[in-house]
Design a protein around this nucleic acid. Structure first.
Lengths: 158, 158
DNA sequence: CAATTAGTTCTGTAATTACAGAACCAAAAA
DNA sequence: TTTTTGGTTCTGTAATTACAGAACTAATTG
């Protein structure tokens, strides 16, 4: 019988990494992001990352640069130390979600455009399409509101 | 000087298709989905799809099957006609969004798990991580509420 | 019973991705 | 000035994807 056991750090990296991949990032990025979540201390040097994950310098370099370009990762420097220490930029996730929202809202807009070009035959379909576009708009608005709500909540608490 | 002009059907297919691709679907799927949005009538046979998009039978077959497995496309049959006519399943998009939401919520859960395994040093980072996990949970809840709200709104109107 | 139709599945391949390894480079240190 | 450090960029490649084309199949039609 298997003994219940806490997940090891490596297992977390794997688990988080896979989830991150499912968000559309490449494997190496997922694992770097994951490592930076479990990392203790939460900032790690270029070398530490490549050693821990056993991936090449090039993979680390391109992945980090991509993650930084998306504001998902940032770096700090320590006095008297030439290295950069990479860490998760916690606000990046919010930005990511905002972008995905915007994309969907755009999708809704295109649907409306397409709708305006459709013939008025097939009313049932047109109505359903209209509703879909409205749904996307609705969700976009609701999410914006939710984000505002979160911001306010945070401000009050912080 | 370019004359302002309504987009042609092909242009919509292209535009919608690209948006759909950005949601993570492969090109052929994006274009099929797009074609079914602008299609008049809104149901098209296997053959019509491959002819319009000029893609192979295999591409149409696998794409349609995938889209149907995800409930994004369905088909109808017409009396005295052996063919199936494929059309968009409008409720599929909602399901898709629900699934994406669930994935993010799961991501938040993993973050919490990881958190519970972190040392208590680096409080600042831990707090931020906690907040991120809470943010994902919060957004998940808000979206569930939004979905409910939409359902109620629809029921009242319909 | 053929022959046709409506699609499916298999096979091969061009294009792309994701990465390793090595060469490279700029800034800092010696 | 040379050497070392902390990366970046280039080159090559294994693996994967996305699809075409052909072979195939089950149901229908003649």
């Amino acid at each position: 019988m298997k003994v219940e056991k806490k997940l090891s750090a490596k297992d977390y990296v794997e688990k988080i990494g896979v989830s991150f991949e499912k968000e559309g990032f490449q494997p190496a990025m997922g694992r770097i992001f994951a490592y930076l979540i479990i990392a203790d201390p939460p900032h790690k040097s270029f070398e530490e990352i490549l050693e821990y994950l056993k991936i090449s310098k090039s993979a680390v370099s391109t992945s980090l640069n991509y993650l930084m370009s998306r504001d998902l990762v940032e770096y700090i420097t320590l006095p008297g130390d030439r290295k950069r220490y990479f860490k998760i930029n916690m606000s990046g996730w919010v930005t990511l979600i905002k972008k995905k929202m915007a994309r969907r809202s755009f999708f809704g807009e295109i649907m409306k455009e397409a709708l305006s070009a459709r013939s008025s035959k097939y009313k049932e379909f047109n109505d359903a399409l209209q509703e879909q576009a409205e749904f996307l708009e609705f969700m976009h608005k609701e999410m914006r509101d939710a984000l505002d709500k979160w911001e306010r909540k945070k401000k009050k608490k912080g």
